[in-house]
Amino acid sequence: MNRLLFEKTGKAIYISHLDTMAMFPRIFLRAGLHVKFTRGMSPHAYVSIALPLSVGTSSCCELLDFTLEEDNVPLETLPARLNPYFPAGIRVLSAYDSDRKIKELRYLRCTVTLEYDQGISDDGCRDIEALFRQDQILVEKKTKKGLAETDIRPMIESVHVSRISSGELALESLICAQNPSLNPQLLVGAIERYLPELAPDFAKAHRTEVFDESFQVFR
């Protein structure tokens, strides 16, 4: 299996997961390369992206699996070949062969930036850190049957709170990536629920790294 590591930042964070999937085969074609097709009634180029990224979340550790039709293309040349053809904000960082299965991917490190238009005090910063040390953190989660309460504490390995500016805090968090997965926006949901006076005016998430079960970087 061929794999790409790519980043999705800037304007590209608003491109949905499905649109991103649809984009990649076209990028390969623009570069004069071909991705293997599925068989069946409606053949289409097969690509698969690990851990669908929510609209509005940026990342520098996205993984895409594919198989190239051409077998004489050195994979390390792919970033330079593909990068001229992306929309603004998407860039391939590396390309390689991997036999590691995506299901081995276990943890995700991400930074959630909390923005306070009226500023945020050091006390507030401490209270938020304390919140994520609680034994149980119940948040409301949308499910098919409506809103349900879920304890997200088991899905959180660690959350460190640091100050970026007088009005911005960063939650450096290590959370479960899949089975079950935790949407980092639920960390903000927890603040809104337990510390409503510390609810940010805006929050954005950025994925920084993915790990396997033993906290080794997953590639």
Binding site: Y14, D19, V55, G56, P87, K204
Partner: peptide, 18 residues
């Protein structure tokens, strides 16, 4: 605003060949 609206990619520009 963008994360709150439907299909925000239609408001950002930045497409290939823009």
């Amino acid at each position: 605003i963008l994360p709150r609206v439907q299909k925000p990619a239609r408001y950002t520009g930045g497409e290939y060949n823009e």
